[in-house]
Amino acid sequence: MKTYPVKGSVKLADGKPLASGVVVFAAPEMGMEFSSPLGDDGSFVLRSSYGDGAPEGTYKVRIERDPSKADSQARGGRKSAAPAPYPAKYGDESSSGLTAAVKPADNALDPFVLVK
Rank of each mutant, 00 (worst) to 15 (best):
A82K: 12
Y50M: 14
M32P: 00
V45Y: 03
Y4V: 09
A105P: 00
A88E: 13
V61R: 02
G51H: 04
A81W: 06
K89N: 08
P83Q: 12
G39H: 03
K69P: 00
S96I: 01
A70M: 12
M32H: 07
K11W: 03
L18E: 01
G51K: 04
S96M: 00
K2I: 10
R65L: 14
P104N: 10
S80R: 02
A13W: 08
S94A: 14
G97I: 07
P28D: 02
R75P: 15
S96G: 02
A101H: 02
S48C: 05
S49G: 13
G21Y: 04
V102W: 06
G8W: 05
D71T: 11
S48W: 10
R65M: 11
E56T: 08
K103R: 13
Y4N: 12
K60N: 07
T99C: 11
T3N: 03
Q73W: 12
E56V: 14
L98K: 00
L46T: 04
G91C: 06
S72R: 13
M32E: 13
L109W: 04
G77K: 07
K2H: 11
V115E: 15
G76S: 04
P55M: 05
S49H: 01
F25W: 04
R47F: 10
N107S: 05
P67F: 04
F25N: 08
G91Q: 11
V24L: 10
D66V: 04
V23C: 04
K103Y: 11
Q73A: 12
N107K: 02
R47C: 03
D41R: 06
A101Q: 14
E64H: 05
P5H: 08
